[in-house]
Structure formats: C-alpha cells, structure tokens
Amino acid sequence: MKVAAIQMVSATSVAVNLERAAALLAQAAAEGAELAVLPEYFCLLGRKDTDKLQIQEAFGSGPIQDFLARSARELGLWIVGGSLPLTVADARASGSRVRNSSLVFDPSGACVARYDKIHLFRFDNGQERFDESRVLEPGTEPVLFELPARDGRRWRIGMSVCYDLRFPELYRRYAAQGADLLLVPSAFTHTTGQAHWELLLRARAVENLAYVLAPAQGGLHENGRRTWGHSLLVDPWGTLLGQQAEGEAVVSATLDAERLAQYRSQLPALEHRVL
C-alpha cells in the first residue's frame, strides 16, 4: 500500500492552510497513495497558543472537518487530519481548553476514528518555552483503526500525535494489538527535533516491528516559529524509505506486507516479551 506523509509550513490563516493542504493531498492522490496523513495543526500555527481556541470545532461539525471529509471523498483517499482543535464538552462555557485531535476519514468522507493527544508537551531551556496544558485537555485512550487496502490486505494502524512519541508504552500497547503502522503527525520544535526526532521514530519502528509514518511541520513559519520537519516513513527494520528536510512536500513510499511478515518471522521479538 502506498502512503504519503504531507509536510507543511502552516501559516496563521486557516483558509490559506486548507488551500495548501488541498494541493498537497491532490498530489498524494495523483502519486497513487491510498492513505495521506497531514501534520499536527495543519490548519493553523497561530501567533499565540490561545489562537487555536478561536477556531475550535465541535466534533462532527465545522469547516476544517468538512474540508477533510470533502477532500477524502473527492480524491477517493483515506485522510488523517494530523490534528485540529476540538471543543471539550465540559469547557464549552469558558472555551478555555480544547482537545488536540487527529481524525481519520475514509474515501466516502466518513470520519471513522478520532484520537486525542494524550501527552502534553512542556519544554523550557531558558530561551524557548512551551506548555500545552495551558490550552489543551489531554486525551485518555489509545486508538487503533483498520484500513482495508485495495489489494484486500487490512492494515492495523495506531494513532498518536507529536510529543506522544517520547512514551514507548503507548506504541507497545499498539504492538500488542497487532499494529502494522504507527502514525506520528507532528510539529516538533527545531531544537528538540534536531536532537531526537529521527532517533525516536526509528526506535519506535524497530522495537515494535512496525512501519512508522511521521508527517511534520517543517520550516520557518509566519509566526516566527521554526519547526524541524524531516517528515519520513521508516520500515520495521529501521530503514528510512523516504524523508524531506524542510518545506512543503509529499513524502510517498510503499508499505510491504510480505516484508513486514518476514521481519516478524526472522526476529519474533514481540513474542519474546515477558513484561
């Protein structure tokens, strides 16, 4: 199955970002992808954290979700909207918190899975400061969905977002459920990405004997923030199958079910776990 990681350099305008996402998704479909995954906050990288509160949508309704559904239907493509801000039911009165949610749309345009980012990023090196808990409410549950490919193979896919990458127990749980592919849409900072991005992604692939697809924000944004990029697909042996350093791009590569089975047969590490 051919898959695509969509790399973006999202701006402060939702309309502009959706226009760019539409062009990149169309490119992925033209290249033969069955699944295309957008990066974290593909719809907006605002000038301040609270900007995402202004564009929040109730689950199941809103212009960003409508865009994803329409794009999936028109392109005949499975689309994962890397993440967008969804309204928290118990915070509607104040609007002070949202969920950072990743949504899966099938080729009919139906939303078939939702994952809310569980681990919230906090970082302070004296120059850069981030604390997602100021505006985000964490999710609580891992989510795995099945994708029936055109060749009849059913791929089991585990969902995550960005900072989740640092918590291997989440991906081990997916491995225990038979995950073949792990998704990590992200907006890693340049600082942390340069240090740990590829290292962590390849580790998650190798230790779980699964493919990892990681679309990212990559470049200097309108708001002055610089993200690491390096969107990639890595195979269960830790080999990079495709990567893009910075700038808008479609990183396409193919998942090989036979190779996946071969790796798991030759090195049945998942069967040797004792904890």
Rank of each mutant, 00 (worst) to 15 (best):
T87K: 08
R122S: 12
V80M: 04
F121G: 09
S160G: 10
E128D: 11
H190R: 14
S96C: 05
A187D: 15
A113D: 01
R166C: 11
N125E: 00
E141Y: 02
R134W: 08
P63I: 05
T191E: 14
F145S: 04
N100R: 11
V98A: 03
L199Y: 08
L75R: 05
E146M: 08
A179P: 03
L120P: 02
Y171Q: 08
N125D: 02
M159Y: 02
D66C: 10
R114E: 13
E132N: 12
N100H: 12
M159K: 03
A205T: 04
A195I: 12
A91P: 01
F123Q: 06
G76E: 09
V112C: 06
G126P: 01
S108E: 11
G152L: 06
V184E: 06
H190Q: 15
I157P: 02
L200T: 10
H119Q: 14
V161H: 00
P148Q: 12
C162K: 05
R153P: 01
R129H: 11
S102K: 00
G81Y: 00
F130Y: 10
L75A: 07
Y163W: 14
R97V: 08
N125T: 00
E169H: 06
A69V: 05
L181N: 03
A89H: 06
V80D: 01
A89W: 07
I118W: 00
R97A: 11
E146N: 13
R122C: 09
G126Q: 01
P63F: 02
G178T: 07
F188C: 13
L199P: 00
P138E: 11
V135G: 08
P185S: 13
Y115A: 10
V143A: 09
R150V: 10
R134E: 15
S133I: 06
V206D: 09
G109Q: 06
R70Q: 13
R134Q: 14
F167C: 14
E128H: 03
L136R: 10
D124W: 00
W197K: 14
G193E: 04
P148H: 09
Q127M: 13
Y171N: 03
W155D: 10
L165T: 15
Y163L: 08
E146C: 12
K117S: 07
P148M: 09
L170C: 04
K117P: 01
L200A: 13
F121W: 06
D164G: 01
A93W: 07
P138G: 13
E74Q: 09
